[in-house]
């Protein structure tokens, strides 16, 4: 009888311990609210329409996170945030004039470190925030494409690397710093969103400092396939550990 009573008490105690985690894990929206993510991230679809509004941004928009990101990436990032924009969310806010080259001044990383349970729940919730108008199913992972041609467009005619950092081989990172890094784009982003964004950046962000070009759909698909092959090298993964 005594053993049964002790067992029952221990079970109840275990349930009590687990209860807060269960309730938090069940509601990713609450996790987002409790961590005040909206203090830095736009969560409700208010696109920055003027330069003044762009400058007031503290962190990237998340109201279309479910269209933009991969859930696996979000779950990992929310536990261990890392810098994706070398010069901060808006490079102008953290750059000062320099004689040879303008200097980036330690941009803050506006991100919380969540527990695994909270990160899973928050990522699940963020994945529900989608732009219903974004065409889906266009990017097909694993599709064969002319990689040499795509590379030429990315590095030469399109000069995407002027603003984006990429891995030029064996973890050697080169490229511009005013825009998000792309060396792990294939681990981080949704291919359909990449295609939509590179085709019309201003649809997503009216004051994006990325040029909008008129190119054939086949070229956009080629570039998307190429960008989605960009994944963290073994050297980078080792360095993270």
């Amino acid at each position: 009888m005594k053993i049964a009573k002790t067992y029952l008490l221990m079970t109840l105690f275990s349930l009590w311990l687990a209860a807060p985690h269960i309730s938090m894990a069940a509601d990713g929206k609450t996790v987002i609210e409790q961590n005040r993510c909206a203090g830095c991230h736009e969560m409700n679809g208010g696109k920055a329409g003027t330069i003044a509004e762009v400058l007031s941004k503290k962190a990237p928009d998340l109201f279309y996170a479910g269209s933009k990101f991969q859930e696996k990436f979000l779950t990992k990032f929310l536990q261990r945030p890392n810098r994706i924009r070398p010069a901060g969310t808006v490079f102008l806010n953290y750059t000062a004039p320099g004689p040879e080259i303008d200097q980036i001044q330690e941009p803050p990383l506006c991100a919380s470190r969540l527990s695994r349970e909270d990160a899973v729940a928050a990522a699940q919730y963020l994945m529900t925030l989608k732009d219903p108008d974004m065409p889906t199913g266009i990017y097909k992972p694993g599709t064969e494409f002319a990689k040499a041609n795509a590379k030429m467009i990315f590095h030469k005619s399109g000069a995407c690397n002027a603003c984006h950092q990429v891995d030029v081989g064996n973890g050697d990172i080169k490229g511009g710093v005013s825009a998000p890094t792309l060396y792990d784009a294939g681990d981080r982003l949704n291919g359909d969103w990449v295609l939509s964004y590179i085709k019309d950046p201003q649809h997503w962000d009216p004051k994006a400092w990325m040029p909008k070009r008129e190119l054939p759909d086949s070229t956009w698909q080629l570039l998307t396939n190429f960008i989605m092959t960009m994944k963290k090298s073994e050297e980078m993964k080792k360095a993270e550990k």
């Binding site: 102008l92 080259i101 511009g176 710093v177 005013s178």
Partner: peptide, 23 residues
């Protein structure tokens, strides 16, 4: 100019933008 051009041409327009290093 600051939003679109300065990232390469520099905040003061002297060709010293933050992206210059690897160009």
């Amino acid at each position: 100019y600051k939003l679109y051009c300065a990232q390469c041409h520099g905040l003061k327009g002297n060709g010293s933008g933050v992206n210059k290093a690897d160009m």
